[in-house]
């Protein structure tokens, strides 16, 4: 697949966590507007490899917007200019021929850079390990309506569960706060009966782990929700605050 777009890329290159990074400029030509942003990087990396230089490291996996691996901060926005999509679902038609595109990794002290555009998001895994689960095996799927759940709660739990844990909220937040992520994970379980028995413990432990990882705190700017590829609602953060404060006051 080739096309007629020529793009100027300014990409953050950094050898490892400790090394001092910097921007490198690349000209990428004959790009099709139907390519995804990651495919454009593939084309560039093929060329870098054939030239005998190190390809640009970046995270990716499913390339269909559901795994949460891709993580590029494109022209000042996590996952680029398009709303409600991940980087892999961003296509070159969102840009113009001759554009200069600046690509940076997620920047947060809790997400150290592994190499180039790849960051270590295991802080999220540790937050989940602290309580983002139901401890007992809940068995096979229940018959429909055997556990009555209000439609509204089911919808909200489902919307919160849409979080893919990509970290765009942290990347977008001026405080590098993980509260949208953590609140989505607390909410999806707090809203459903299966999550109820461990509700308080979960809120306390997940928030404690989030703080221990060094994420900033929310100042309600709303940038996280605006940039979230799954459009997770700020309502979840208010719910997390209620869950946490209620649990702290009664534990």
């Amino acid at each position: 697949m080739s096309g007629n777009m020529n793009i100027n890329l300014k990409v953050w290159r950094q050898k490892n966590r400790k090394a001092k990074g910097g921007f490198e400029t690349y000209q990428v030509s004959e790009i099709s507007e139907d390519m995804s942003f990651l495919e454009m990087f593939d084309v560039l990396n093929e060329r870098l490899i054939s030239e005998g230089t190190a390809p640009i490291a970046f995270d990716h996996d499913c390339r269909e917007g559901i795994c949460g691996m891709c993580s590029m901060y494109i022209n000042g926005s996590p996952h680029g200019p398009l709303k409600g999509v991940t980087t892999c679902q961003l296509h070159m038609r969102s840009f113009k021929d001759g554009d200069t595109i600046v690509v940076e990794p997620w920047r947060a002290d809790s997400f150290p850079i592994v190499k180039d555009l790849a960051v270590d998001r295991s802080a999220f895994d540790r937050v989940i390990s602290a309580g983002g689960f139901v401890s007992v095996n809940t068995g096979n799927a229940q018959d429909g309506n055997s556990i009555p759940i209000p439609k509204d709660d089911a919808d909200k739990a489902f919307a919160a569960a849409a979080c893919i844990g990509c970290g765009a909220c942290v990347a977008a937040c001026k405080n590098a706060s993980a509260m949208l992520f953590v609140s989505a994970k607390i909410s999806q379980l707090a809203l459903l009966p299966q999550g109820a028995p461990e509700r308080e413990e979960r809120a306390l432990n997940m928030v404690a782990q989030m703080d221990a990882e060094g994420f900033g705190a929310c100042t309600n700017t709303g940038a996280c929700s605006a940039e979230c590829p799954k459009e997770i609602s700020l309502e979840n953060i208010a719910r997390m605050n209620r869950e946490y404060l209620g649990a702290a006051a009664t534990s």
Binding site: F23, S77, E104, K174, A223
Partner: peptide
């Protein structure tokens, strides 16, 4: 970040 495009 070198560039931030604020959505707040």
């Amino acid at each position: 970040y070198a560039i931030t495009n604020s959505s707040s």
